[in-house]
Structures are given as C-alpha cells and as structure tokens.
Nucleic acid binder design. Structure first.
Length: 248
DNA sequence: GGAGTCCGATGGCTTACCTCA
DNA sequence: GTTGAGGTAAGCCATCGGACT
C-alpha cells in the first residue's frame, strides 16, 4: 500500500531558460558543458504531492540569491574602487568608436554633451525608423549600423546602444510575459493537484469500504482499473499503459 | 516638488576570432 | 602544423542618471 502511494507522488517542474547570461549561439551548448553549468532555468515551479522535504525550496532560493547578490555587489565594489563619478569625469565610452563624441551632431537637436550627460532624446521619426529596423533584424552588422546611423543622423555608437537597450528591454518584457504565463500554469496545476488528491482520497475510501478487499499483492493501478468511472490525466494514463504492458 | 518610469549611456565581463612567436 | 599568449571586436548585464509624467 505504501509503495502504491509513493508511485502516485507527483512532482512537476516547469523551467524557463531565461537570463542565463550571454553566450554566442555557436558555442552555447559546448560552453555550457565545459563550464559545467547546466542550462539552469531562471524560474522554476515545483509541485509535489507530499514529498516536499526532498527539495527544500529555501535552499534553492538562498543559492540563487547569493549568486545574484555577488554579481551585483562586485559591480558596485569595482565602481567604488575606481571612484567613478559622472559629475567629476567624462566617460567617453569604450574606445571602440573614437568619433562617438566629436560634437558633429550638435545641430540635430540633440546637443550631445556627454561630459555633463545631457541626454539625447530621439525624435519620433528616429524612433520609428529604429523600431522598423529592429523588427527586421534585432542585431545589425557594421554596415547596417553605419547606414542606419547615417540615415538617422546619429552616431554609429548611438545606433548600437539603442539596439542593445532594445534587445535587453525586449528580453525583460518577454521574461515578464513568461513569468505571468508560468504563474497561471502554476495556479492551474495547483487546482489540478488538489482535484487529484481529492479523487485519490475518494478512491481510497471506496477501497477501504469495499469487501472483500483486493489481494495485497495486487498493485493499486490494477485495483483502480476496475473502477468504471476513473478519470486520470494524460501523463498518468501513459504511465499506466506502460506499466500495464510491462506486467503482461 | 517628490516619486516613479522611461530610456540613452556607461563600465565590466565574456567569448570568438585573429595574429604572432 | 600546433599551441599558448595577447589583442580586439562585439554582445550582454547591471547600473546610472537625465528627462519626463
């Protein structure tokens, strides 16, 4: 009986592979293996019937939080160590594009003075064209960036940054959508879990009440299969069929 | 005018790729 | 031909901070 019960312990994990950090597509799988980092989902839901102690949730959460906390505090520490101050010093970017802040764009209503961090606001037309291009390609090559920059009367680096931010924010939005979806899944599965538990209890009650009781060697699924109105979920049904075949 | 949000910009980090000894 | 070191480019992430609501 105990074994039969254990066979019914159900756990469900939904994983969402988001936020694993950047890895170029080509080497993604290989690198993951080399780094010994399985593609750990950033968000996972775990539903179990009774065996929750096997996977203490707190342990996982603490691990995740520690990781995030470490990377965040490291960035801050580096910044503090180098005493970065936007007011005190001019940050000219990453020396990738020395022409970035050459001031040649000042007649474009942008007045890009990066030392005082005067913020560029893209015009509606510029934004629209960038959006249009983003729909076609979420990443651009050098030539495309140059061409678009020229077309928009912006710096190549500004187009690059816009695409970078756009990708990041699209990803964030998608994560939120996925998270919402998974929440709903979780709710549905919790309901289903509850329903199945109830059903199991009812079936147990029937079994206890039934006389004569089935032979103890008879597994529960065989006993249950005699129940004419039994409803089971598809995954249980698969398992049920498989086990039945194995026992034939 | 203070709080919240948006978004352009930045520095750090990682990886791929190339060159050269 | 192979290998390891060093340099560079490009992308992502976390964060900042000005502008706007």
């Amino acid at each position: 009986m105990e074994d039969d019960h254990k066979a019914c312990i159900t756990s469900l994990t939904l994983g969402l592979g988001i936020g694993g950090g950047y890895l170029p597509k080509k080497k993604q799988n290989v690198t993951m293996m080399m780094m010994n980092k399985p593609n750990k989902p950033a968000l996972s839901l775990d539903l179990t019937f009774e065996d929750d102690e096997a996977y203490p949730k707190e342990a996982i959460d603490e691990e995740e939080e520690e990781e995030v906390g470490l990377s965040m505090s490291l960035n801050k520490r580096i910044r503090e160590e180098h005493n970065y101050s936007n007011n005190k010093e001019c940050r000219n970017g990453k020396n990738r594009d020395s022409s970035y802040n050459d001031g040649s764009n000042d007649d474009n209503n942008n007045h890009n003075n990066y030392c005082s961090r005067k913020k560029l606001r893209l015009t509606k037309e510029q934004s629209a064209l960038l959006e249009e291009n983003f729909k076609l390609h979420t990443t651009l090559n050098q030539a495309q960036k140059q061409a678009l920059a020229k077309q928009l009367n912006l710096k190549h680096r500004q187009v690059e940054v816009w695409f970078q931010n756009r990708r990041a924010r699209t990803k964030l939005k998608q994560t939120e959508v996925d998270c919402e979806f998974l929440k709903k899944c979780c709710e549905r599965l919790t309901d289903e879990n509850l329903r199945l538990k109830k059903e199991l209890q009812e079936l147990r009650a029937i079994k206890v009440g039934a006389s004569p009781s089935p032979t103890p060697t008879q597994p529960l699924y065989i006993q249950l299969s005699k129940s004419a109105t039994l409803t089971i979920c598809s995954s249980c049904e698969e398992l049920f069929k498989k086990t039945k075949q194995e026992n034939m």
